[in-house]
């Protein structure tokens, strides 16, 4: 635990000092990674903790993003207004869609979420007068808090960092709470929980709404960050790429989706500068992870750590201990 806390402090410190270390381009990249990490974290509630694989999560990202874009353009770019309105809109959307989706499971759940997200996509794409159609909405004013203007990338970075830490902390609390344990129980064996008297459908709906709402928050932040939103961010490929982030990072862990988001964004940005075959590279890496490290980057990291500590302390007791720790972590 101590080790974990230590790593956490180091990571947070690195993030706090980022604007002093990185050039503007990389700082913007980190900001984008943090926003997409929030998005991936929200999906992880469904995929990783509740065991519901969704291929329609971009719908809520889109609802939040467009809500915030329209409000910022038409009413006021006040950050809290756009953020909370997006949250509310995404919660409403996910509650309505969720009622239908949580009734089915497995592959049918995946396809139903896809269906709803594609319907939202076609709405966004067709309603040119509201959403700008295929060209999207641009020239969205940058967010304001009081008179503080967040068009400065460094200020905006800190704002995102603060929100990211809050959301990360909040989600950690949720998944470790009794509520989170019920979700994990649903993932492991829904029938058993049902027979224990849990109203699992309600729990699943709650997970769906939390995931959707946070997805909307991520969308809203993305709009504020880029001053732009277009239907391609609501398309199913966006749902697909966030799902890949969660799976490559390590679903069912807190840090996994964050690492996955960082990994994919960096890969997509850097690799595509050198070759047009970035899709193939992502595909190959994805296959390697599925075959060799099904627990994602987190699993890989743990494997490395384990072999490292094993070679350091060869005594049988410590071996057992780290094993126990490992098992414990998996349960968590």
């Amino acid at each position: 635990m101590n080790k974990k806390g230590f790593a956490l402090i180091a990571a947070v410190m690195l993030l706090i000092f980022s604007p002093f270390i990185f050039s503007l381009f990389y700082l913007n990249l980190v900001t984008e990674i943090l926003i997409l990490a929030i998005f991936a974290l929200s999906l992880n509630i469904l995929v990783g903790y509740t065991g519901l694989v969704s291929l329609g999560h971009a719908a809520f990202f889109g609802v939040g993003a467009y809500m915030s874009a329209i409000l910022a353009r038409e009413i006021s770019p006040n950050f809290f207004l756009t953020l909370f309105a997006s949250l509310a809109a995404a919660i409403i959307a996910s509650a309505i869609i969720g009622i239908f989706c949580v009734k089915v499971s497995g592959f049918y759940f995946l396809m139903l979420t896809l269906a709803f997200s594609q319907m939202i996509y076609s709405f966004v794409h067709q309603s040119t007068t509201i959403t700008g159609g295929s060209n999207g909405l641009s020239g969205i004013p940058s967010p304001l808090i009081g008179s503080l203007d967040f068009s400065n990338p460094v200020y905006f970075y800190y704002l995102i960092l603060l929100l990211f830490i809050l959301i990360y902390g909040g989600l950690s609390l949720i998944v470790h709470s009794p509520f989170g344990q019920v979700l994990i129980g649903i993932r492991e064996n829904e029938t058993r929980l049902k027979s224990m008297g849990y109203h699992t459908t309600l729990y699943k709906l709650a997970a769906f709404v939390i995931a959707g709402g946070l997805g909307g928050v991520a969308g809203s932040l993305y709009t504020s960050f880029n001053s732009f939103i277009s239907p391609s961010d609501v398309y199913w490929t966006m749902s697909g790429s966030v799902l890949i982030m969660v799976l490559i990072g390590g679903s069912g862990t807190m840090i996994g989706p964050v690492l996955g988001a960082a990994f994919i964004v960096i890969l997509e940005t850097i690799v595509s500068s050198y070759t047009t075959m970035w899709m193939m590279i992502i595909g190959i890496i994805f296959i390697l992870f599925v075959v060799f490290f099904p627990k994602g980057i987190v699993g890989l990291g743990k494997l490395l750590l384990q072999s490292f500590s094993k070679s350091n302390k060869l005594s049988a007791i410590s071996g057992k201990k780290s094993n126990a720790l490992y098992n414990n972590d998996v349960k968590n």
Partner: peptide
């Protein structure tokens, strides 16, 4: 896992045919 494998494969084949 096998579903995911075939999805990764789709990415690979995409660039190969291109």
């Amino acid at each position: 896992s096998q579903v995911l494998l075939t999805f990764g494969l789709a990415y690979v084949i995409h660039d190969m045919t291109a």
